[in-house]
Write a protein that binds this DNA or RNA. Structure first.
Lengths: 146, 146
DNA sequence: TGATTTCCTAGTAAACCCATAGTATAATCA
DNA sequence: TGATTATACTATGGGTTTACTAGGAAATCA
């Protein structure tokens, strides 16, 4: 029941890019600030871009930027783009429903319920909210250091 | 974010044992009904027994039975016994909190919230409820076959 | 004693995670 | 144009976990 590094790093990357809100943000800078290998970030960012969550620009002064307002991203879409399906059991995935016991399964409703509460939570939290927290955290740290 | 077969099989096993409510239930029979390898079930049942969720009796006419009323089991304890921690990120596990970024992490509250909704759901559903569903499902299947 | 059933530990093939590496492609600037 | 910068794509590998399989010891009962 763990979210992999891909999903967790994706969220930190999105927050980081969102906060540097002027123009395109270089992956190199994200990697430095977040202490994540740039090569690994490249893979993660590729997934986010394919899902339309980020826009890219190649070459000098290139980088990545958000494709929409931070409050228009919900955390579910970011995680789904990087983690794939978030359902707790594979029987709930529409594409491949290969369980022979599906019709005689007394637990499917239970798992569906779990899936629902997870998705409801993730869909009701936005990137904008997390960016706010990050901003507040940064301000606090500056205050303490004075 | 997947529950492994251990957790899923454990639930089916507990339902199965709970429904055969007279005396000890042999693993051999559970394996046959649930179409799960008996050797694999042995390992799972060991975890459940260590957690005090099942009582065992060795030798001929031995087997396993529930240690308390079905409605006194919540699904969280069954899953935790077999899956280990259910928290979506390891930073939330009390024992080993080894993340150096903990104090400057803006996402920890988000993950804590997800952890909370998952645990709330699991702790508010009982084995007894799932046994009811299983019983209803069996009755229906019998009706159809007439 | 012999049949039955749990208990314990080891082994293993496959899948997945978490990167690292190298090369190709594209945009920019001097 | 040629050098530089940065993304894009694909392959590879070590380590861990998953999902079993296997063998035999220990306990219980007829």
């Amino acid at each position: 029941m763990k979210v992999s590094t891909k999903g967790r790093y994706a969220i930190r990357l999105m927050i980081d890019i969102g906060i540097q809100s002027n123009g395109y943000v270089r992956l190199k800078d994200v990697a430095r600030r977040q202490e994540i290998s740039i090569k690994y970030l490249e893979q993660i960012v590729g997934l986010l871009q394919k899902a339309g969550l980020l826009l890219s620009s190649r070459g000098a002064h290139g980088g990545y930027r958000l494709s929409k307002d931070p409050y228009d991203y919900n955390m579910g879409e970011i995680l789904k783009a990087t983690e794939g399906s978030l359902s707790p059991v594979s029987c709930l995935e529409d594409e491949v429903n290969n369980c022979l016991r599906y019709n005689i399964c007394s637990t499917i409703k239970f798992w569906q319920g779990l899936n629902d509460v997870i998705n409801e939570y993730l869909d009701n939290h936005t990137l904008g909210e997390l960016m706010e927290i990050e901003k507040n955290l940064k301000e606090k740290n500056i205050d303490y250091s004075i």
